[in-house]
Amino acid sequence: MSGENHITEVGGTGVPIPGDDIDTDQILPARFMKEVTFDNMADYLFYDARRDDGEFNDHPLNRFDGASIAVINSNFGCGSSREHAPQAMMRWGVDGIVGESYAEIFRDNCKSLGIPAVTTDHETVVELQEWIEDNPDGEIDIDVENEEVSYGDTTIDVEIDDAMKEALVEGIWDTTALMYSNRSKVEETTADLPYVEGDD
């Protein structure tokens, strides 16, 4: 695969999205999933949480327009497997996420989209979220390769799932081409599965 897929570092200003167990129904309400493309998903990101009586409220996504790094708390993206949720974040502008923890399907989806999703402890996350509130124009940098996040004068160690790191750094997060090249091995596997008929 070409080198343009390598993701070693992402950066930009931040947006805190505080709260534990934020589910994908909040990130992207189901009624906006009736479109056959992801093109407009950014418009629906946190649609309900961002509005009071139809008007934009002071939700962080309204206050930190243009941000690239989302900072979240624990079990983010739980619930439905809809890729619409990380797609909406990506299309809104999020290039990387720092947080306490992610629901697994959500993290897998981030990997498929090339969005690094790194983790650190609760206190560190809260400090970063507060720092963003005080420094809305401050740059945050996620160094995927070295597992570090830096902002202001601070550099913190973060963790990133091994497979995600490898995939991003090596530029192999688009798994279709990779797995497609193993076609003959797939045939060998299916030959031993009594319930799979040879493809005809």
Partner: peptide
């Protein structure tokens, strides 16, 4: 029985 290969990322296909 369903594992095809180990991918460079360390995940299984």
């Amino acid at each position: 029985k369903h594992k095809v290969a180990e991918l460079p990322s360390g995940q299984d296909q």
